[in-house]
């Protein structure tokens, strides 16, 4: 009993960390620019395919592909932002939703065309597989690795936003874009770079996730709801909120599948709807 409880918690936290890695970029960009980007999962998918392809076709080691996934996805998102998203910053959310659903559909079709409809194979290095015994429990090495990565990224984000000059510029641009412009901050550029960082993180998360949740062209649609729940429940633009929401979601999902396999995702949706009724701006939403 205790064993399974610990196991569920551990697996849930690892899964939550993965969701956090992918969704935190969405939270930041949605909170920053007020842009309802439903295509965020497509960036994560691209990151996953970059890693899978580099490993399988070019023989790159797993760790070398991770920065590549981050950089390539960030660049791809810059192109998309310049070409499409930029035009709709001031438009209503309906237009944004429709445009990004369009991007999702094209990404799904494109991924099917290039990589085929089946699961992308990936083989992580041997030292990341298996389990280690610490105390009375066995811990999955890859899940430990995911949790460590999540903690690392959280730390980097918090330090980056709270302690650096660029972080201060981002916070200024979010709080009051007009005032920030008046102070000589190029708000447009700050937004672009933030968007790239957020997408890059999604790419990294996607790359890390292949081994845990798999990867096929329907990825952006299958996990869209999960990313949106993290963002909406955590509160737009709140890193702390996203982290807590992602971990709670991860644990609930794993626990629900274990204890109540018949209800499926039902509980998660009920929790989401009631949370949003209680706090429409999310747990840590400010605006």
């Amino acid at each position: 009993m205790l064993l399974s409880l610990a196991n569920i918690l551990f697996n849930g936290v690892a899964y939550g960390m993965l969701l956090f890695l992918i969704a935190v970029g969405l939270s930041v960009t949605m909170g920053l620019m007020g842009f309802a980007n439903l295509a965020h999962g497509a960036f994560a998918m691209l990151g996953g395919y970059v890693t899978a392809t580099l490993m399988a076709k070019a023989g790159w080691p797993f760790f070398a592909t991770l920065p590549a996934a981050f950089v390539l996805v960030a660049l791809a998102s810059l192109v998309l932002e310049r070409a499409l998203y930029r035009r709709l910053y001031r438009a209503g959310e309906l237009d944004q939703v429709l445009l990004t659903i369009g991007v999702v559909f094209m990404a799904v079709a494109g991924a099917t065309f290039v990589w085929g409809p089946s699961q992308a194979p990936i083989r992580v290095p041997a030292y990341l597989t298996g389990t280690v015994a610490i105390g009375p429990f066995d811990w999955g090495v890859y899940r430990l690795f995911l949790i460590a990565m999540g903690a690392l990224v959280t730390l980097a984000l918090i330090v980056g936003l709270e302690r650096t000059r660029f972080g201060a510029m981002i916070r200024a641009a979010v709080d009051n874009p007009r005032m920030a412009t008046g102070l000589g901050i190029n708000v447009d550029r700050v937004f672009s770079i933030t968007f790239m960082l957020g997408s890059g993180l999604a790419g990294l998360g996607g790359a890390l996730g292949v081994n845990l949740i798999g990867l096929d062209p329907s990825f952006p649609i299958k996990y869209l709801v999960y990313f949106l729940i993290v963002v909406a429940v955590g509160g737009l633009g709140s890193i702390k909120g996203s982290l807590i929401a992602a971990i709670v979601l991860g644990v609930c999902d794993v626990a629900g599948k274990y204890y109540l396999p018949d209800t499926g995702a039902f509980i998660i949706y009920v929790i989401m709807v009631s949370l949003l009724l209680w706090r429409p701006l999310g747990l840590f939403g400010r605006r």
């Binding site: 429709l98 445009l99 369009g102 094209m106 799904v108 079709a109």
Partner: peptide
């Protein structure tokens, strides 16, 4: 799969 691509393109163009 091509249908999905055209559907997406149609949406983007309309918006």
């Amino acid at each position: 799969t091509y249908w999905f691509f055209w559907l997406g393109l149609m949406l983007v163009l309309v918006v």
